[in-house]
């Protein structure tokens, strides 16, 4: 089985994130990059599918040179090889363009199942899985907290407000997984040493038949018009318990729609 897992490098969740003043894109250089946390569940799930059904796991990453660090980590967790789509022409692409570029690569490398995390912690669009499925003309099984493959059929549990849906489709398919679907493994010592020897295929836009005019900041369908720094956190409200503390807490929770 040919399993492709999409992995994005994002700024460290704990670091202060900034937009670049010159083109209003995310400053990826000044902060440490890490694997998008939600993608770690996708990597783990792809490795579990591989272990259960044989096959090969390919990491697909679109991002600058620096994203190679995250590719290495995915390989050290156990993925077999990687494709790194890296080209200055891609800088500033929005989700529509990203889905176009990645779909082109997926057409080129082929797949039985594509697995993604449910969203990235930097842009938080959560739309890439749906767009990829649409562009590739295959089934979309989103927000899965359970994935089973049986021959040419894939079944998932789709998380919903009311519980979950059971979803079934024929392969090939695109799946997005939610956190808690599994417990991502740590890279092991042997995994790290083996990752050094695993192939990483670097592709530019031309290599993947991507039309450079259809990607990048200038052709993006969305535009960041303006941005302001997040305001400093406001002081919290202190409620003094004068016998009605419980009631006040309940009122607060109700005002925030927690209860």
């Amino acid at each position: 089985m040919n399993i492709v897992v999409c992995v994005k490098q994002v700024p460290d969740t704990w670091a202060e994130r900034k937009l670049r003043s010159e083109d209003k894109t995310l400053d990826r250089e000044s902060v440490d990059g890490v694997i998008n946390e939600l993608d770690e569940y996708a990597i783990e799930e792809s490795l579990r599918i591989k272990e259960a059904h044989d096959g090969e796991v390919t990491v697909l990453t679109m991002g600058p040179e620096k994203a190679a660090e995250s590719i290495r980590k995915a390989l050290s967790m156990g993925a077999d090889k990687a494709v790194h789509l890296v080209d200055d022409a891609l800088h500033g692409s929005d989700v529509l363009q990203t889905s176009y570029a990645m779909a082109q690569v997926l057409r080129k490398i082929g797949f039985d199942v594509v697995i993604l995390g449910s969203e990235s912690t930097d842009a938080r669009m959560g739309a890439l899985a749906a767009m990829l499925a649409e562009r590739l003309g295959v089934a979309q099984l989103s927000l899965a907290n359970k994935v089973e493959i049986d021959g040419g059929t894939i079944r998932t549990q789709r998380v919903a407000d009311y519980g979950f849906d059971r979803v079934e489709a024929s392969l090939p398919a695109v799946v997005s997984v939610v956190e808690k679907i599994n417990e991502p493994r740590y890279p092991s010592f042997k995994g790290i040493m083996a990752a050094k020897k695993k192939p990483v295929d670097k592709l530019g836009v031309a290599d993947a038949d991507i039309d450079a005019a259809k990607v990048g900041l200038t052709g993006a369908a969305t535009e960041v018009v303006d941005f302001v720094a997040a305001p400093p956190r406001e002081k919290g409200t202190i409620v003094k318990d004068e016998g009605d503390g419980g009631q006040k807490v309940a009122e607060f929770l109700a005002s925030k729609k927690f209860i």
């Binding site: 290495r72 050290s76 740590y186 890279p187 010592f189 790290i192 040493m193 990752a195 050094k196």
Partner: peptide, 15 residues
């Protein structure tokens, strides 16, 4: 080496 940096990070993650 890059692998040793990865070792350091992976152990820190476990810890």
């Amino acid at each position: 080496t890059p692998e040793q940096v990865a070792i350091k990070e992976a152990v820190a993650e476990l810890c």
